[in-house]
Design a protein around this nucleic acid. Structure first.
Length: 817
RNA sequence: GCCGGAGUGGCGGAAUUGGCAGACGCAGUGGACUUAAAAUCCACUGGGCUAUUUGCCCGUGCCGGUUCGAGUCCGGCCUCCGGCACCA
C-alpha cells in the first residue's frame, strides 16, 4: 500500500523535541483573557506513576482546549521537594537528601516531557531551592510581625518512628499519615500558624466555591463550627467558678453532675491535695493520650457544684472522656440527653433526669433505655415546662445572659497549624534564641537561613540540625551576643501552600512573586488533584492566600476557583502500590504503545472523578483507534484548509448523505466541546470521536469536500487528548501552524439535527413503533399518521384514546384506557 | 455513631432537563483476507419465550409511591466505598 505506518515513538519524539526547543507552551501576560490551569505538583520520590499521568493528562486536555478557544493559558509545573522520604533514602541508602532529590527531579522532568504535556517549563518551581524556601522564611517573619505566628509549649502528636511532631491533619485514625505508627503525645515548644483566626472566613467562603461538594463538606466538618453557651457553675464550698460549654443550654435542668477533663487546672489542683486522686487522674491522662475510643472511666472529685438555674447541688467528677482542648475542658453532664453522659451515668449509677420529652411520650419521669438527643417538649425545667426544646434553647439562653449566668460562645474543632518539624530536609525556621533578647526573628537581609549540606542523618535522637554546631551557634542580630538557632524545620505543607503564586512570575528573586503578574493570573481557574488533599493542602493554601492578602501582598482571598478531584487508579481491586506489587510503570506503556495511547486510555476508561480500574486490554482498544485515525487521514489525503466552511453550508439540494455527514460533524463538535468545557467528561468525548471515526470509515463519498473538511475537524478535536498524532497528521496534511494556535471548531445550531427524524411511538408508555418524519412536518399530521400505523392500531383497536403526549422531535405516547 | 458518595450486561462505562436502557470500548462468537499467524475488515453479542422474519415478556441493589412514561423524582430498606470520630 505504501502508506507510512503509525510509529508513535518517532512521531512523539519529533514533536516533543520541537516543543522543548521552541518553548512552544511558554506564556506571558498579554491582553487576552487569561486561564490558569494547575495540577498538583508531584512529590519528588521515585518516578511518575499512573496516578500522576491521570492527573496531568486531564489538565493537559483542558490547557490545550482553552488555548484553542483563544485564552492566554498558564500551565506550569514544579516539584514538591522537601520532606521525609529524602531523609529515609539517606538513612537506607546513604545518599544525601539533596542529591537524591535532584536526581529524582531530573528523572521526573524527563518522564513528564516524554508524556508530551504542554507545560511552560520556564516557570518551574523546586521547593528545596534556596530561592524558593527563603520566601517561606520571609513569610514566617511577616506573619510573625502580623501576629499570625506564635510559639507555645503544647502536647504534640509525636510519631516515634519518624521522631517528629505531626499536625492534627496528619494523624489518621491515631496513626502517622506516612508510616502508620501509632501516635503518642509529647510536650514540646513549637511554632504555630494561627489558622483559627480565619476559621469563619474559611467556612463562609467554601460555600461559594465551585468545588466538589464532598470536599466542601469535609472542610466544613473539619473546621467544625458549633454555637452554644458558656455557663458558669459555682463550687459549693468555695464559690469558685467552673465554666462549661454546651450546645444544648435547654437541657441544663437535666444536668445531674459535672465533669472535668483530667487535664483541667482544677483537676491538677485537687490532685495535689490527694495522692490517691492524683494517681487516678494520671492514669486517665495516659488513656486520653491514646488516640481512639477508650472505655469511659472517672472518679468523684470530692467536691460539689451548684446548678445556677435551680441551685441544685451536683457532684463534680473527673473523667477520661472530657477533652481539655475543646470548649472549657469541663462539661455539664445531662445523661438523659447525651449518649456519652448516659453511658457514664449508668456505669457509676448517677441520676438520669429527663427534661426533653420525646414526641409521643407522656410520662415526664419516663425511664429511658438510651439517651434521647432529639427535640421535644420541656419537662422538669421550672418556668420552661411545656415549651418546645428549640424555642427553650433560645429563651433559656436569653434568660441566662440576663441572669449573668452564661454567655453565647462559638467553638471550632479546627486547631492552629503546628509547623515545627524535628527534621533535616525542610525549610529552617528563621528564629534565633538569644540569652539576653529572647526570641528574635532573623532579619530580612540575612535570608535565607540556608540549610547546611554537611549533616549526619541517622533517623534517631531528634533533629539532625541540632547536631550541626556551625549552624546552631550564631550571634544575636539585635545585641550581637552569643545565641542559638532554632533547629526545627517547617512542615512541607508550607511549601505547597503558595507554590501556585510563585508560578505566576518567571524566577524574579527580589520578591516571592510579582504582584502585577499574580493579579493577572490569579486565582487559579481550574485546579486538579487527588481527593486525599481535600483537607490538608487545600485548607492550608486557602489560609495562606488569605494571610498573604492581609499582609498586603495579594488582592484575592481564595486561590482556586474551580476544583476537580480525580479518582485513584486501581489494579486488581487495590490502589497501586509497591508493597502490593500491582504497579504499572507508565514508561513501559509508553515504550510499547506511545504516550498518546496511554493518555487516551486513561481518559477513556472512566470519568475523571471516579476510580479507574487498570485494564491492559483497554489500552489496546485506544491504540487501535489511533491507528484507525492514522489510516483514515493518510488514505484520504486531504489538504489542510485555513478556514472550514463546507461543513457549515446549508443547501436545499444536498444529497441525504451529505446532509447527514454535516449533522454528524456538527453534533460531534458540540458533544466534544460540551464534554470538555462543562462536564469534564473526557471518556464520552472520546467515545463520540470514536463514533465519528466509525462513521467516516463507512462514509461512501470520500472525495467530497465536506468529507475532507470532516477529517480536519477530527484532527482538531483530537488534539487536546492525543496531541502528538494529531499534530503529525495535521502536518502531513500541509498545516503550517501548530494546532494549539488553531481555532477550536464551532458548530452550527441549525445543523445539529437532520431533516429526517426518527420518532419513537409508544402506547401506554411502551415502545410499539418507530416512525421517520420530516422535521418540518406539522404536529397534527404526524399524529394522524401515527394513529394509522398497523403496529399502533393493534393496541388501540376498540379502545378509547384518552390523550396523546407529543414531545416534538422525540416521541409520541398514545394513552388508551 | 455522624457526615458524604455509589450500586446499570461477562468487564470499564453511556443515557446531560423524567422520554428508544446498555452509546463507545474490552472480552467473546462467526466470517473475509492469508500456506499459516499477526494485523486489518465485516457481522452478531442483557436474559427468557417464540424460531422465517415479524413479535412478546422480563430487566438499572431491594420494597413501595408519584407520573401517560422512572436508571433518573419521592418514602422506606440493603450492600459497598470514602471522611470524621468521646468536639459536649
Amino acid at each position: 500500500m505504501g502508506l507510512p505506518e503509525y510509529n508513535p515513538e518517532e512521531v512523539e519524539k519529533k514533536w516533543q523535541e520541537r516543543w522543548e526547543r521552541e518553548k512552544t507552551f511558554s506564556s506571558s501576560v498579554d491582553n487576552r483573557k487569561k486561564y490558569y490551569i494547575l495540577e498538583m505538583f508531584p512529590y519528588t520520590s521515585g518516578s511518575i506513576h499512573i496516578g500522576h499521568v491521570r492527573n496531568y493528562t486531564i489538565g493537559d486536555v483542558v490547557a490545550h482546549f482553552k488555548r484553542m478557544k483563544g485564552y492566554n493559558v498558564l500551565h506550569p509545573i514544579g516539584f514538591d521537594a522537601f520532606g521525609l522520604p529524602a531523609e529515609n533514602a539517606a538513612i537506607e541508602k546513604g545518599v544525601h537528601p539533596k542529591k537524591w532529590t535532584y536526581a529524582n527531579i531530573d528523572n521526573l522532568r524527563r518522564q513528564l516531557k516524554r508524556l508530551g504535556f504542554s507545560y511552560d517549563w520556564e516557570r518551574e518551581v523546586i521547593t528545596c531551592d534556596r530561592n524558593y524556601y527563603r520566601w517561606n522564611q520571609w513569610f514566617f517573619i511577616k506573619f510573625y510581625e502580623k501576629g499570625l505566628v506564635y510559639q507555645k509549649k503544647a502536647p504534640a502528636n509525636w510519631c516515634p518512628a519518624c521522631s517528629t511532631v505531626l499536625a492534627n491533619e496528619q494523624v489518621i485514625e491515631g496513626k502517622c499519615y506516612r508510616c502508620e505508627t501509632p501516635i503518642i503525645q509529647k510536650n514540646l515548644n513549637q511554632w504555630f500558624l494561627k489558622i483559627t483566626e480565619y476559621a469563619d472566613e474559611l467556612l463562609e467562603e467554601i460555600e461559594k466555591m465551585d468545588w466538589p461538594s464532598t470536599v466542601k463538606k469535609m472542610q466544613v466538618n473539619w473546621i467544625g463550627k458549633s454555637k452554644g453557651m458558656q455557663i458558669d457553675f459555682e463550687i459549693a464550698e468555695s464559690g469558685e467558678k467552673i465554666s462549661v460549654y454546651t450546645t444544648r443550654p435547654d437541657t441544663i435542668f437535666g444536668a445531674t453532675y459535672l465533669v472535668l477533663s483530667p487535664f483541667h487546672p482544677l483537676s491538677e489542683k485537687l490532685a495535689e491535695k490527694d495522692p490517691l486522686l492524683k494517681s487516678e487522674i494520671e492514669l486517665m491522662r495516659k488513656e486520653q493520650l491514646i488516640k481512639g475510643e477508650v472505655e469511659k472511666r472517672g472518679v468523684f472529685a470530692g467536691i460539689w457544684a451548684v446548678n445556677p438555674v435551680n441551685r441544685e447541688k451536683i457532684p463534680v467528677w473527673i473523667a477520661n472522656y472530657v477533652l481539655m482542648e475543646y470548649g472549657t475542658g469541663a462539661i455539664m453532664a445531662v445523661p438523659a440527653h447525651d449518649t456519652r453522659d448516659f453511658e457514664f451515668a449508668l456505669k457509676y449509677n448517677l441520676p438520669i433526669r429527663v427534661v426533653v420529652l420525646p414526641p409521643g411520650e407522656k410520662n415526664p419521669d419516663v425511664v429511658l433505655k438510651e439517651a434521647y438527643t432529639g427535640e421535644g417538649i420541656m419537662v422538669n425545667s421550672g418556668q420552661f415546662n411545656g415549651m418546645p426544646s428549640e424555642k427553650a434553647r433560645e429563651k433559656m439562653s436569653q434568660w441566662m445572659v440576663y441572669q449573668k449566668i452564661g454567655i453565647p460562645k462559638v467553638h471550632y474543632k479546627l486547631r492552629d497549624w503546628c509547623i515545627s518539624r524535628q527534621r533535616y530536609w525542610g525549610t529552617p525556621i528563621p528564629v534565633i534564641y538569644c540569652e539576653r533578647c529572647g526570641v528574635v526573628t532573623v532579619p530580612e537581609k540575612d535570608l535565607p537561613v540556608e540549610l547546611p549540606f554537611d549533616v549526619e542523618i541517622t533517623g534517631k535522637g531528634g533533629s539532625p540540625l541540632a547536631k550541626v554546631e556551625s549552624f546552631v551557634e550564631c550571634t544575636c542580630p539585635e545585641c550581637g551576643g552569643r545565641a542559638r538557632r532554632e533547629t526545627d524545620t517547617m512542615d512541607t505543607f508550607v511549601d505547597s501552600s503558595w507554590y501556585f503564586l510563585r508560578y505566576t512570575g518567571k524566577g524574579k528573586d527580589d520578591l516571592p512573586f510579582d504582584r502585577e503578574e499574580a493579579s493577572y493570573w490569579m486565582p487559579v481557574d481550574q485546579y486538579i488533584g487527588g481527593i486525599e488533599h481535600a483537607i490538608l493542602h487545600l485548607l492550608y493554601s486557602r489560609f495562606f492566600t488569605k494571610a498573604l492578602r492581609d499582609i498586603g501582598l495579594l488582592d484575592i482571598g481564595e486561590p482556586f476557583t474551580r476544583l476537580l478531584t480525580q479518582g485513584m487508579v486501581i489494579k486488581d481491586g487495590a490502589k497501586m502500590s509497591k508493597s502490593k506489587g500491582n504497579v504499572v510503570d507508565p514508561e513501559m506503556i509508553i515504550k510499547e504503545y506511545g504516550a498518546d495511547t496511554l493518555r487516551g486510555f486513561i481518559l477513556f476508561a472512566a470519568p475523571p472523578e471516579v476510580d479507574l480500574e487498570w485494564k491492559q486490554e483497554g489500552l489496546e482498544g485506544v491504540n487501535r483507534f489511533l491507528k484507525r485515525v492514522w489510516r483514515l487521514i493518510l488514505e484520504n489525503g486531504a489538504k489542510w484548509k485555513e478556514k472550514l466552511e463546507e461543513i457549515y453550508k446549508e443547501r436545499e439540494d444536498d444529497k441525504d448523505n451529505e446532509n447527514e455527514l454535516k449533522v454528524m460533524v456538527n453534533k460531534t463538535i458540540e458533544k466534544v466541546t460540551q464534554d470538555i468545557e462543562q462536564r469534564f467528561r473526557f471518556n464520552t468525548a472520546l467515545a463520540s470521536l470514536m463514533e465519528f471515526v466509525n462513521y467516516l470509515y463507512a462514509y461512501p463519498d470520500k472525495r467530497s469536500s465536506v468529507f475532507k473538511e470532516s477529517l480536519q475537524v477530527l484532527i482538531l478535536l483530537l488534539y487536546p487528548f492525543t496531541p502528538h498524532i494529531a499534530q503529525e497528521l495535521a502536518d502531513r496534511m500541509g498545516c503550517k501552524k501548530e494546532l494549539f494556535s488553531c481555532e477550536w471548531p464551532t458548530f452550527k445550531r441549525s445543523l445539529l439535527r437532520s431533516d429526517k427524524i426518527t420518532l419513537v411511538v409508544q402506547v401506554n408508555g411502551r415502545l410499539r413503533d418507530r416512525l421517520t418524519i420530516f422535521s418540518n412536518q406539522k404536529k397534527e399530521d404526524i399524529e394522524k399518521e401515527v394513529l394509522k400505523r398497523d403496529k399502533v392500531k393493534r393496541y388501540t383497536q376498540g379502545k378509547k384514546i384518552k390523550k396523546i403526549i407529543h414531545v416534538p422531535g422525540k416521541l409520541i405516547n398514545i394513552v388508551v384506557e
